[in-house]
Design a binder for these strands. Structure first.
Length: 271
DNA sequence: AGTACCACCTGACGGC
DNA sequence: TGCCGTCAGGTGGTAC
């Protein structure tokens, strides 16, 4: 689930529920989820402070916390990465945690925020500064923010399938397997097209399509069933058909990931 | 440099 | 019903 639109929804969810509330407790239910921090250290950092602001970059969510009332008084940032199956849940704590809770942060008002992660592929960490952290891990500009000039960088230097390039988090952060398929479908570009064979016009079209798809998905709450009827995402299953022309979709493996496209609207490259 | 494959994990689903 | 193989929206490493 968690690609850029989902992360944006998680951010808004956290903002509307858990911000500016005093943290009274932290439980770590599975220490494997922690990245380079001990449960004790995490607890001592968070206890008695409050989340004051959040920021998102690609598929990473950062929640800044501090002890004071001042929004600018940020002691450090909690890093959320959701892997393939992570999510957040805010609920009235009656002693029972939601299924798959890995970390539960409790607040003064009797509510708790749980980080859920079924497959344990997500990570929770801590950093003193978001900017230096994203530099350290080599994260590219956010796909929803990137300028056209920044987007152009993707297509410079070497070959490679356009889908692989769009999914490279070091170049542009936020697109995952399914939204990349959606962007390519809406732009009518075959996923295996070599990125250096695309015309400037097609690159422009990919850029505007990417922005539109991301904006639309966020507007619809990142829920596949609420996406426009001509989106391919709800069709990604066996026997799916093209929502624009009705032809059977094709499924291939590209970079080890399932890739769906419409063979009549996204033509084979090299011809 | 680009790509294929494997690993990390757990759960759901289809076939037999 | 039960077992087993396969697949799943992420990331990172290795080996051609």
């Amino acid at each position: 689930m968690p690609e850029l639109p989902d992360l944006e929804i998680f951010k808004r969810y956290l903002d509307s529920t858990a911000l500016h509330r005093k943290i009274t407790g932290v439980s770590v239910l599975d220490t494997r989820i922690l990245s380079e921090i001990s449960p004790g250290k995490l607890k001592s950092f968070l206890k008695s402070s409050s989340f004051h602001q959040t920021t998102r970059r690609g598929k990473y969510l950062f929640a800044g916390f501090g002890n004071g009332e001042d929004k600018e008084d940020i002691l450090a940032w909690l890093i959320f990465h959701f892997g393939m199956t992570g999510s957040l849940k805010y609920y009235k704590n009656n002693g029972e945690d939601p299924e798959y809770s890995k970390i539960v942060i409790s607040f003064e008002n009797g509510y708790s925020l749980a980080y859920l992660c079924t497959r344990m592929l997500g990570k929770i960490g801590l950093t003193s500064a978001v900017d230096s952290y994203t530099v350290d891990i080599g994260l590219g500009p956010d796909a929803a923010d990137v300028s056209f000039e920044g987007f152009l960088e993707l297509f410079k230097g070497g070959r490679g399938a356009v889908k692989t390039a769009l999914m490279n988090q070091n170049m542009i952060a936020g697109l995952g397997n399914i939204y990349t398929d959606e962007v390519l479908f809406q732009a009518g570009v075959h996923p295996q097209t070599q990125k250096d064979s695309l015309s400037l016009k097609t690159v422009r079209s990919l850029y505007t399509t990417m922005k539109q798809v991301l904006d639309t998905a966020v507007d619809r709450g990142a829920e596949p069933e609420k996406l426009p009827s001509d989106y391919i995402i709800p069709q990604r299953q066996k026997n799916g058909t093209c929502p624009k022309c009705g032809n059977d979709l094709k499924k291939i493996t590209l970079g080890g990931r399932s890739t769906y496209f419409c063979p009549s609207r996204q033509k084979e490259p090299d011809q």
